[in-house]
Write a protein that binds this DNA or RNA. Sequence first.
DNA 1: GAGCGCCGTATTGTATCCATCACTCCTTGT
DNA 2: ACAAGGAGTGATGGATACAATACGGCGCTC
Lengths: 239, 239
Amino acid sequence: MEKLASERHNVDAVHDRLRGAILRGEIPPGEVLQQVPLAEELGVSRTPLREAFRLLQREGLLEGSPNRSYRVTSFSPRDLEELYVTFIPLQAIAIRLTIPRMQSADIATMMGDLAQMDHYAQAQDVEGWEEPHREYHRRLVQHAGRRVVELLEQLWDHAARYRRVYLAGTSYGFDAAAAEHRELLESCRAGNANLASAQLARHLAHTALDVLAMADEAFDPQALKVALAVAQLPLPDGV
Amino acid sequence: MEKLASERHNVDAVHDRLRGAILRGEIPPGEVLQQVPLAEELGVSRTPLREAFRLLQREGLLEGSPNRSYRVTSFSPRDLEELYVTFIPLQAIAIRLTIPRMQSADIATMMGDLAQMDHYAQAQDVEGWEEPHREYHRRLVQHAGRRVVELLEQLWDHAARYRRVYLAGTSYGFDAAAAEHRELLESCRAGNANLASAQLARHLAHTALDVLAMADEAFDPQALKVALAVAQLPLPDGV
DNA sequence: GAGCGCCGTATTGTATCCATCACTCCTTGT
DNA sequence: ACAAGGAGTGATGGATACAATACGGCGCTC
């Protein structure tokens, strides 16, 4: 953790820096964050650091209790399941709202994202792959409204953190993901919101199940199945 | 805004105090919060006050930009619609997950909440009515998991703030709400998750439409209709 | 008279200092 | 030997002092 080069205000700079480090797994779950050493390392005082902690606390990336050190939020299969139980229905509604407002330029950009992902997948570069991956998924839901999008961004952060930790050594399912991404984009182009919504729900659920399998083979994702089933229901015409 | 009597830590005390004041509308939307006067009024220094601001910022109740004063988040019909676009699907899935785990004691407690609501409704006491109302709705989804419940609590806060401001002078729809609450609880007792989920979605949408009508008659809640329609779909047997 | 720029003041952002709490290890008594 | 208590140490919580930024008013210029 180097000194901050940013000319922005310290709270934002510290927040971004810590958030990134947590999401990339550089600071592992459960790690204790002591204020004095960390503030020194970042080259700021404890005051802005503590404010950044509060932001991260509400984002769910840190947990802290009074007079105790903050800790990076830990993982659990239950938490992962609940994460996707919220994530899947929201993504499903968000893509429904986005599809009618998609421009052909959006489709083209997403195709570019897919191409980039292929490139990084061939190089087995998970780090590079994640960037267009996130961009692609962001654009799938970008017209659902500011509030919805912001909430989905936060949930994405958490999901990405789980993926990074548990799928670290695996093939990351590049091929299966690429196929799903392409089918999904095709449904978007066709304006088929029912199909796209169901495909997106399944795609997310696949990831969730992959991660869950790595985390705890015995875990039965009952709630996840319900959320997936609901999200896959087609809406009758005329709505 | 009196001095803080709490013996808890200042950040939490300040946070709760401000959050309550914002939700009750005592601090109106758009209001500027200056640190020095507010800190004096609360009897704390600016340090814990600023940390509380950061929490409220991430909760969406305050918005701030660097070197500018924090402001209480403003309302807009679009934001309200987006709020319910997230709220309705999440509540719908949450009650589905809760119903199988409901005990008869839960039903009894909720009937007690309904009785309390009737009592306050008769006295036209909106303030008192809101407490059992919130309790009732909390219990409807309480077994959906910690993460889901916490997210719903935050969304509830925002919804309650809209309700309070826009329905202030009205009858608050006590009678219609009471009928919907009773039907919904009956479906829970019967274990009919499909029905309860749809009823809850409709109930929430009714409130949203009431508030929207007060805020902007001309607004067309297209996204809200989609979210409501999705949330009302029945799940086939066997899931 | 209107618009632009400068300066003073008010407000926010950060650092430092002090108070308080928790945790550890050592002592002491049984 | 073991458990309970206490002192010491190191952490966090909060208040204050200082720095930097923004905002408003005033005067100047065109």
